[in-house]
């Protein structure tokens, strides 16, 4: 079983929710990332989504959009994200999910990515703008290499699509909490409950909910429904505020801990 699968199995046995943290790789700098990830792990993040920056992030709100711009300006590339995974593996067994738009991955080559990501110690990949209809050339080589492929399920997805999303996913299914782009929100969307239920009826895979979760209270509410909670923009906003300053790691760690405490409380 993959690190991702093992994580969810273990947490399920402990009856504890999984905290998933998204950060944009390369922000504030490629070199700083291992220490950032270590801080998140100390704070209680169980799984890291490593955002591969893209020039045209249509699914992202302003916070992650600006982070992608900063990361690209700092010289981040998919190849360097794999270097980062390798560096993290020297210090940690935390599951790593690559989180990217399709074009950088297509340009790199699906088979090459599968081989290199596996060798680097990454555990899976999610491509935001890859629909299940177009996914075969991606899923086959990744699965063959023993990597997980995670797909998005949305509040707009009809039942038939939810089934196909689950069929193409391994590790877990990522539920988009609301119709919109990434970014914080003040209240958890009402569409989460029904979406979770609808997917539960179609798959035994663990379910993680993301998009817009930014406070310990929202994390707690979400954890009551799903197996995992994804927090992205709220972490990235801390990176934006702290920049390369010395307060970055302590701030990330403290916020992760607050989320984790909230979730488990």
């Amino acid at each position: 079983m993959s690190r991702i699968g093992e994580l969810f199995t273990r947490k399920r046995a402990e009856k504890k929710p999984v905290l998933i943290g998204y950060i944009t790789a390369g922000d504030p700098s490629p070199e700083r990332m291992p220490s950032l990830i270590a801080a998140l792990e100390r704070g209680g993040v169980d799984l890291i989504e490593l955002g591969v920056p893209f020039s045209d992030p249509v699914a992202d709100g302003p916070v992650i959009m600006k982070a992608s711009e900063r990361a690209l300006a700092a010289g981040m590339t998919l190849a360097k994200v794999l270097d980062l995974a390798r560096a993290v593996r020297l210090q940690s067994e935390i599951p790593l999910l690559l989180f990217s738009y399709l074009n950088p991955v297509m340009r790199y080559g699906f088979s090459k990515l599968a081989a290199d990501a596996k060798a680097a110690g990454a555990d899976g990949c999610l491509l935001t703008d890859l629909s299940v209809e177009e996914a075969d050339e991606f899923v086959a080589p990744l699965r063959e290499a023993g990597l997980d492929t995670v797909f998005l399920a949305a509040p707009t997805s009809p039942p038939e699509r939810l089934r196909r999303v689950a069929d193409h996913s391994s590790g877990f299914v990522y539920l988009v909490s609301r119709t919109g782009v990434t970014g914080e929100q003040s209240r958890l969307s009402a569409s989460v409950g029904p979406l979770v239920e609808s997917l539960r009826a179609r798959t035994a895979l663990p379910l993680a909910v993301g998009f817009g979760i930014s406070t310990p209270e929202q994390a707690r509410e979400t954890a009551r429904l799903a197996d995992g909670v994804v927090v992205g923009s709220a972490f990235v906003r801390i990176v934006e505020a702290q920049g390369a300053g010395p307060g970055l790691e302590p701030a990330l760690e403290a916020f992760a801990r607050a989320l984790k405490t909230g979730m488990e409380g």
Binding site: T128, L130, A154
Partner: peptide, 8 residues
């Protein structure tokens, strides 16, 4: 090639 939310 769009995020799942736009497929429907």
């Amino acid at each position: 090639y769009v995020p799942e939310t736009l497929m429907a």
